[in-house]
Write a protein that binds this DNA or RNA. Structure first.
Length: 331
DNA sequence: TGTTAGGACCGTCATTGATC
DNA sequence: GATCAATGACGGTCCTAACA
């Protein structure tokens, strides 16, 4: 819980992203509260746990008591965080501190104001108070586990190469070849090949079979540092053939530059191009992830709006019921 | 049936905060 | 200061519903 949440806790009895059907199971604030300034109906006590309706003992002016089911939920952090909110909270903090720290506070306030909200942070802080909302890190972890057979090794690649067909080949330390097709979408464009004869070179060809979407056309590429050529043939069951390279490169083969062996300006240019394409690939994936988080954040906000609207409606009904009860008892 | 407006999605660039 | 990740902005493409 950060200070960002404090202000919203005071402002509204916010509820987190919960199923809309649970909106009615709300509880009263502990302690006394007045229904309205004009009435003398006081709430003497309330008792309820989270998720169960609270029954409140209402003391009427006539001395009679009534049991009322409350709808006000305990204070919860707000989903919404904005620079404005942060400014208000920082200002409130500054009020409590000594004036001698005013300059430092102003600087900190300016820094906080300039920061943009992070969907990851927002949702993580939200989920820390609402178990119903999955944490993004946990979600990503589960996603990684789900795709562990093909993607997890991507985290520590040994080498990354770019083919003439726009694909990226990652050679991991375990001898796994990963082929990423930027044109396809995420996981579907990633293919993992296991070099069955890696470490024990054998004469002749090695057929590597894999399951997945096949790229278009036959593709060949070199694996620098390894005396092999990987040749990909497409079809219903594509096969990647790893063989010893011949003295002349096959037509269409692109020899990827190995880091640390750049000499000519052309190689430098190729290295720059490779770095640029790698950066674009990373940014492409980052943008995709950012959009996903943003959609999740918007959904969370929409859920909260629905819950608050439901809560507001229930509060109005409760107020009306209390007024009717009060009028009935007064007669 | 062709046209068009609107939405969803994506890739790229620029910017900014965080980290080393 | 360099590098990287996250995110806003912008433009492009594709799909779909509405309409003449």
């Amino acid at each position: 819980m950060t200070m960002d949440m404090v202000e919203s806790q005071q402002d509204d009895s916010a509820v987190d992203s919960v199923p809309e059907g649970d909106a009615g199971h709300l509880q009263n604030q502990p302690g006394q509260s007045q229904i309205s300034p004009g009435s003398e109906v006081s709430v003497a006590a309330s008792s309820a746990g989270r998720g169960s309706p609270a029954v409140t003992l209402v003391q009427l002016p006539s001395g009679q008591t009534a049991h009322v089911k409350g709808v006000i939920q305990a204070t919860q952090p707000s989903v919404i965080q904005s620079p404005h909110m942060q400014a208000v909270q920082v200002a409130s903090i500054a009020d409590e501190s000594a004036e001698s720290e005013g300059i430092i506070d102003c600087q900190k306030r300016r820094e906080i104001l300039s920061r943009r909200p992070s969907y990851r942070k927002i949702l993580n802080e939200l989920s820390s108070d609402a178990p119903a909302v999955p944490k993004i890190e946990e979600e990503e972890k589960s996603e990684d586990e789900g795709a562990s057979s093909g993607i997890s090794a991507m985290a520590m690649p040994t080498s990354l190469y770019h083919t003439n067909t726009g694909q990226y080949i990652t050679i991991t330390q375990g001898g796994t070849i990963q082929i990423s097709n930027p044109a396809s979408d995420g996981v579907h464009g990633l293919q993992t090949l296991q070099m069955t004869n890696s470490g024990t070179p054998q004469p002749g060809a090695t057929i590597v079979q894999y399951a997945g979407q096949s790229p278009d056309g036959t593709q060949q590429f070199f694996v620098p540092g390894s005396p092999v050529v990987v040749q990909a043939a497409t079809g219903d069951m594509p096969a990647y053939q790893i063989r010893t390279p011949t003295t002349t490169l096959p037509q269409g083969v692109v020899m990827a530059a190995s880091p640390g062996t750049l000499h000519s300006p052309q190689q430098l240019a190729e290295e720059a191009t490779r770095k640029r394409e790698l950066r674009l690939l990373k940014n492409r994936e980052a943008a995709r992830e950012c959009r996903r988080k943003k959609k999740e954040y918007v959904k969370c906000l929409e859920n909260r709006v629905a819950v608050l609207e439901n809560q507001n409606k229930t509060l109005i009904e409760e107020l009306k019921a209390l007024k009717d009860l009060y009028c009935h008892k007064a007669e």
